[in-house]
Design a protein around this nucleic acid. Structure first.
Lengths: 230, 230, 230, 230
DNA sequence: CATGAATGAGAGTTCATTCAT
DNA sequence: AATGAATGAACTCTCATTCAT
C-alpha cells in the first residue's frame, strides 16, 4: 500500500518501534542464547494459539521446555516477552519489499503492487496481526505501538498521494493525510476481515485473494480519481 | 452510512443482537428495578472509564452503592452485565434515523447525510464503541456480536450500492458486497480514529467533524464513480 | 424386628425424639397453617431429591411457591425444617404395628413378621431413611436422634431376646443387648443396601423382597439357636 | 472377617480402589516431597478432627504451615486431597494380614481370628473410617469407593461361606452372597458402634473388645450353623 | 403474614513473581 | 544459568439471613 515516490526518505528508521526497549541484557553464553530463543519461539506459538490474555507464563515455559523461573532471566514480564516476539517478527511484518516506482511508471500498477504486497504480508502474519490487535486493546503500550506503526504507513502513503496530486493525477480536493488514513484503513480493515476473521468462520467463501487486491485497488484509484480508468 | 433505498425492508428485525439472552428474571418490584438500573448505569460508567478487563464486579457495586452480592440478583457475571449495558444503549448506537431517499433525490446528498448520521452516532457513543472494540478482542461472544452488527450495516449498504449500479450511477465493476465492506470499513476506521483514539491523544488537531464527513463522503462517491463530480 | 413380648411397656413414649424441640409457635391463622404445611411438604420433596446439603432454603420456598422470607416465619433454619419433616414422617417410620405375640405363639413366625414389617417400613420410607443417614453424618443433633431411634429398637429387641433366653429357646451365652445390637444392625444394613443403595445402582438384580425377609430371619433365628430348625 | 480358604486368589488386585486417579504430578524434588507429605499429614489430622465438610483448605495449609496456594501445587481440590489421604492409609485399612487356614483347621478358630483382625484394623483406623462414612454420604465418588471396598470383603467372605457349605459345615439353605452381606454388615455395624460412636459418647461402658470379638464370632457361627457348638 | 430484594462474610481458586537449591 | 516449589494478594461467586414495603 506504499505508493511513496522512491526518493522520499521516510522517518521509519526510528528505533525498533517496539515498546519496552528496556529489554534485559542479552545472554552471554551459548546456552543462554538457546534458552532465550526457545522462549521467544514458544511465546509466539502460545500467544498465537491462546491469545495474549489467556497465556500464562508457565504455558510459555512449558512449551519451551524450561523451568518457570528461567523466564525471568530474560524477560521482566509478559509484556516484554511480547515485545521480543514482535521485535523478531517486525522485519517481515513491517513493509514488504515495495517495488520502486520509477518516474514514468503507471501509478495504478504501482498502487496495485503495493496493495498486493501489503495484503500478502498481512496474510503471512495473520495470527500475529490478530494478536497485535488484541494486545492493542489491552495494553496501552502496545496500542501506541500499533498506532505508530499504522501512522508510518499512512504518512508514507499520504506523501504518495500528495505527489500524485502535484502531478495532477489525483483529486486535489482531499487532504492527502486524511485521504491516506481513510484508504489505508480501508485496506487494513479488509485484510483483518479476510485473514483474521475469515479463518475461524464457517462463512463459506473464504475471500478470493486476487479479487481482494483488485477491488481494493480499484476503489482506491477511483477514490482519488486516477485518470483514464478502465 | 446507510444508503439503502427506502422500500428495501431489511432483515434487521432479528432479535436483540445482544449476546447472552439468558438474562436473569427481571425485578418485579419498584425497588428492584431501581437497583438494577443503578447497576447498569454504574457498570456503563465504570466499563467506559476502566475498560472491561480492569473492572472488578465490586467496582460496579461500589459505584452503584449496593452490596457485592446484589450484583448476582440481576446478572450472572460480568459478561451478562455488559450485555445489559449494550442492550440498553443499542437503540441509540444502531443507526440514527436515516433520511429517506426519494426517487429523484441526489445520491450524493443521501450519502452525505448517511455518513453524517453514522459519525454523529459514533461520536455520541464513542466510549461505548471503544469498549465494544475491546471486548470483541477478549470475549468470543461479543466478537460475534460486533461482527453481526457490522454485517448488518454492510449488507444494507451493499443493497444501496447495488441499486445505484442498477440505476447506472455507480461503478459496475465492483462486487457490491465487497465494495460495501471496504467503504463501510473505511468510515468506521475513521470514526474509530477520530473519536476513540483522538480523545486520549495529545495529537493536537482533534479532527474537524465537517471535514471528516465531507472527505469520507467524497472518497466514497469517487470510489463508486458517482457521476457529475464537483 | 420387634420381638418384645406384649406386656413389656417400653420407654418409647419419651417425647418426639426429634431434635430441636424449640420449634416456633404454630401458625394461628388458616393461611399460616397452609403455608407451613406447603413448606414441610416441599422440604421433604427437595431434601429427598437433592440431599440435605445441596438443598438451599430458596429451593424449598420455590417448591412451596412462597417467598424466601416466609421460611423464617415458621422455621429458624434448615435444621429445624428437617426436624419438622422428620416429626411428620415419624409415625410411619417408627415401627409399624407389630403383631402381638401370644404366649404359645411360634417365635420364628413372630420374628419373621417383625422383620417383614421393619423392612416394609424401611422400603416405604427409603428416601427419608437415606436422608437421615446423610444428615446424621453432618449434623450432630441428628446423629443423636438417629442413635436414639436405633437404640430404642435395639433395647426392645434385647428384651425379646432376654425373654426367649429365659424360656430356653435362645442361646444363653450371648449378652442380649449386644446380640440385639448385632442382629438389629444386620437387618438395618441389609435394608440400607437393598432400598437405598439398591435403587440408583445398575446392579442388575434388585434384591427379592421375600428372599430378603427369609434370609434375614433365618440367620437371626440361627444366630440365637432357635430350636427345631427346618 | 475374611474366612476365605487360602488357595482362593481373589480379584482384589484391582487398582488402588481410590477415587480420582487424576492426581497431579508427583513432586520431583526433595522439598516438594516434604511439602506434599506435610499436606497429606495435616489433611488427615484436620479431616479427622473437624470432618470433611467443615474443613477449609486453609485449615489444612495452616496446619501444614505453608501458603494457601501451595495446596494447588499438589491437589486440585479437597476431594483429591482426601483421595490422597485414603490412598496412603489404604494399606493398613484394607485387610489386616489374615491368618492362613490350613485344610484341617478349625473353621471357628479361623473365623474368630478373622473377626479379631478386622475389628483391630477398624479400631486402629477408627477416625478414618468415621471420615469415610461421612464422605460417602456427601461425595458420590467416595460412596462408590466405600461400596466397592465393602463388596470386596463381602465377596471374599461369600466364597468362604460357599466352601463351608460345600464341606457340609454351614447351613446350605442360605445364599452365600446374601448371608455374607448380612453377616459382614453385622460386624461392620458393631465396629462402627464401638469405635466410632463409642468414642465421643459418655455412654459409660466402652465395649469390651474381647466380648465384641466373641459375640460377633458366636453369632456368625451360629447363623451358619457351624457344627459342634460349645 | 407475605414478599423478595439487600446484605456481606467467607470459601475456593489462579497465577505472576520470588528465591533457595 | 537453571530449576521448580513457595508465596499470597486478588478476585469471583454463594447463600443464609434480615428487613423495608
Amino acid at each position: 500500500m506504499d505508493i511513496t515516490v522512491p526518493e522520499e526518505t521516510d522517518g521509519d528508521k526510528a528505533p525498533p518501534m517496539v515498546p519496552l526497549s528496556h529489554l534485559r541484557e542479552p545472554p552471554t553464553t551459548k546456552r543462554g542464547a538457546r534458552t532465550r530463543a526457545a522462549l521467544v519461539k514458544a511465546a509466539r506459538k502460545v500467544f498465537e494459539r491462546d491469545g495474549y490474555l489467556d497465556t500464562r507464563l508457565t504455558d510459555i515455559t512449558k512449551e519451551a521446555q524450561c523451568a518457570a523461573g528461567s523466564f525471568y532471566t530474560y524477560f521482566a514480564n509478559k509484556e516484554e516477552m511480547l515485545a521480543a516476539v514482535l521485535l523478531e517478527a517486525q522485519e517481515d511484518m513491517l513493509h514488504p519489499g515495495m517495488a520502486r516506482v520509477e518516474g514514468a511508471e503507471d501509478p495504478y500498477a504501482v498502487l496495485e503492487a503495493s496493495n498486493r504486497a501489503y495484503l500478502e504480508a498481512y496474510k503471512r502474519n495473520a495470527k500475529l496481526m490478530a494478536l497485535l490487535e488484541q494486545v492493542a486493546q489491552v495494553e496501552p503500550e502496545f496500542r501506541t505501538f500499533r498506532t505508530r506503526r499504522a501512522d508510518a504507513f499512512i504518512r508514507r502513503n499520504a506523501r504518495g498521494i500528495a505527489d500524485l496530486q502535484a502531478q495532477g493525477v489525483a483529486d486535489r480536493e482531499v487532504d492527502p493525510m486524511m485521504a491516506s488514513r481513510a484508504l489505508s484503513g480501508m485496506v487494513s480493515v479488509m485484510a483483518y476481515h479476510a485473514f483474521v476473521l475469515g479463518e475461524g468462520q464457517e462463512d463459506g467463501e473464504p475471500v478470493d485473494f486476487e479479487e481482494l487486491v483488485s477491488t481494493v485497488t480499484r476503489l482506491w484509484a477511483n477514490a482519488l480519481r486516477f485518470p483514464g480508468h478502465r
